[in-house]
């Protein structure tokens, strides 16, 4: 894998790598608030069945996970734990911010104890709006993330400046601007 270390990868290999990465996303079991139940419905219920998209909702440790879904309200007391768990995940790692609370504070926009947006503490790849979003919306977010991973230049990411080099801008499910 010396090519990867140097950050120069032939295109066929990149495509192959990205294909493999996008269809074996291990997502960390992590529930915060209401959205965790909808995430559970998307990941654990036979109707939505996320495994058909190649997402494996099994790891109970952040050290085995590629993707984390911030599903719900992040409070100021929880925020350090969120950051710490994110830092324990190995690179390359992806974050889906699920629900209005994690996106921007949502219905608690004027609360004294809620962090207004998880993007203040960790970088977010996909925003899923809704309060809570339907499981289909989360699945759409997963599909968008997979498209992103497929188009990613691995070398650029691994050469990346700093640990959390942002290669592409975040995406909102259903379109719309990011303020």
């Amino acid at each position: 894998m010396g090519l990867v270390d140097r950050g120069r990868l032939p295109t066929p290999l990149t495509t192959l790598f990205n294909l493999g990465r996008s269809y074996s996303l291990w997502v960390y079991q992590w529930g915060l608030a209401c959205c965790a139940i909808e995430m559970g419905a998307a990941f654990g219920s036979p109707r939505y069945d996320v495994m058909r998209l190649g997402v494996i909702p099994l790891p109970a440790s952040p050290r085995q996970a590629d993707l984390v879904v911030i599903s719900g309200t992040v409070t100021d007391k929880m925020a350090p734990s969120v950051k710490r768990l994110y830092e324990q995940m190995p690179e390359p790692k992806y974050v889906i911010s699920m629900g209005s609370c994690a996106n921007c504070g949502g219905p608690y926009w004027d609360s004294y104890s809620v962090t207004k947006g998880v993007d203040q503490i960790i970088p977010v790849d996909i925003y899923v709006p809704g309060c809570p979003p339907r499981p289909e919306a989360l699945l759409e977010g997963v599909v968008l993330l997979q498209q992103r991973i497929k188009n990613e230049d691995m070398g650029a990411r691994w050469r990346g400046e700093g640990t959390h080099a942002r290669v592409a801008e975040p995406v909102v499910v259903g379109g719309g601007p990011i303020e």
């Binding site: 409070t75 608690y108 609360s111 809620v114």
Partner: peptide
């Protein structure tokens, strides 16, 4: 406790 405290009574 308090990891999910959102300040309902004040809101």
């Amino acid at each position: 406790l308090g990891y999910m405290h959102r300040g309902y009574e004040k809101l």
